[in-house]
Design a protein around this nucleic acid. Structure first.
Lengths: 226, 226
DNA sequence: CTCGGATCTGTTGTGCACATCATCAGCCAG
DNA sequence: CTGGCTGATGATGTGCACAACAGATCCGAG
């Protein structure tokens, strides 16, 4: 592997899908926003046909929905579904450590150390929470390797995707305090790293669960205020 | 609603997707089997293009995978992933009753009664476990309405889809005894119906969990034997 | 007989032209 | 002024022809 000299057709489609997934999660495309097939096809230098296949896959994954004659839209979550997703994330955080725990190998550990370093050196950029969003995106993907239960981790990542979009949206609308969120996230990564270095996956899961819970609480508080 | 005189384009696509989902779950298409875009398009009287959109969505949902120049295949689950899915189903059964329980309305109750009646009158057909598979398929979809937590129930249904395919496959290969499975399922539906009529969702969840666990055990036993 | 390579066949991927649908602006009747 | 109608516009949906690709087949050299 690693011979990326000749990106085959399927790899191109997969890369495109990953790129669009990231854009949706990182709020480059806001919930409810319309995506133009024509514009996207032009941007990536391809025809509408292969682009439409990728959009269809994202539709199957529940991130997009297309309406004939209207447009293709990023899915939205109402408050109720957001709460349900958060409640599920709390439960799943415990499950991950209990069901099929996978002790992180040295490479994975170094990846977490790198994440912690990035979190420490992250300074709030008033007009763009994107660096933080990107950091959390990478963090979740690293965390998905802490259990060998693929269905569970796939679903956990999916739920993160759904909740993070609304969470990042609150950063953009200043419902959440960027500097505070950065500090809290850095703390979470540090704590989890410490637990991982001690080989205590259960502790790592508990820490993660606590932060998810607190994050949810802050989001609800601001929701009521706004 | 209910005016089905003019099936719009999008409805057609949705119906087609539901039909293919059912065929995959009911093992009309076995795991690993190749699906021909040309043949399917001809069968449904449409061109390859709209069919490909549906296939792409199913690919996004993790039920299909297409390889350039080779074919489109129904995804396969190895034993490890099957075990992980079963383990998850056990946990989720409890979660459904704990998180967002939804007491069944009279209509839902009557639907369960109808399912129980079908289970009672089901006689083993030596060459076709499909009626049982269809019955369980309907049962799971009815059960998905017992919690208002949509993300949870969607995921539970997805996991059922993954495990049921292998389970039904074992019925086809006679690794499982059809008559025995019919009897056990009828018992499960009766017990759950009783719990629902008493308004005890937690009991219903426990019963379901027990049956999932026992079903898993039978599957593992036959796997070791075969 | 064996092995290697060209070729052949069938598959999914791509591009393009057109059909179908939903929306909105503008206009005309009331 | 109001209300509904009609057309223009731009979106996704569809069909078809062809390209790219993988595997099987066939043929010939050794």
């Amino acid at each position: 592997m690693g011979a990326e000299g000749t990106p085959s057709a399927l790899d191109r489609a997969d890369a495109l899908e990953a790129e669009l997934r990231a854009r949706i999660c990182l709020l480059d495309y806001a919930p409810g926003e319309r995506l133009s097939e024509t514009e996207l096809a032009a941007e990536f230098g391809i025809s509408r046909t292969p682009l439409r296949k990728v959009l269809a896959r994202l539709e199957g994954a529940g991130l997009l929905v297309s309406r004939h004659g209207v447009g293709t839209f990023v899915t939205e979550l109402d408050d109720e579904e957001l709460d349900q997703a958060y409640a599920l994330r709390l439960e799943l955080a415990s499950l991950a450590a209990r069901l099929d725990p996978a002790l992180p190998d040295p490479e994975a550990l170094s990846r977490f150390r790198h994440l912690a370093e990035r979190a420490r050196s992250l300074r709030p950029n008033p007009d763009s929470p994107r660096p933080l969003a990107q950091l959390i995106y990478d963090f979740i993907q690293a965390q998905a390797l802490l259990s060998t239960n693929r269905p569970l981790m796939d679903f956990a990542t999916h739920l993160y995707t759904q909740t993070a979009r609304l969470w990042v949206h609150s950063l953009y609308t200043s419902d959440l305090d960027l500097a505070e969120e950065i500090q809290l996230f850095a703390r979470e990564v540090e704590d989890i790293l410490q637990a991982l270095e001690a080989g205590d996956l259960e502790a790592a899961a508990l820490i993660h669960r606590a932060h998810v819970s607190l994050s949810w609480r802050r989001l609800r508080a601001r929701r009521g205020t706004g």
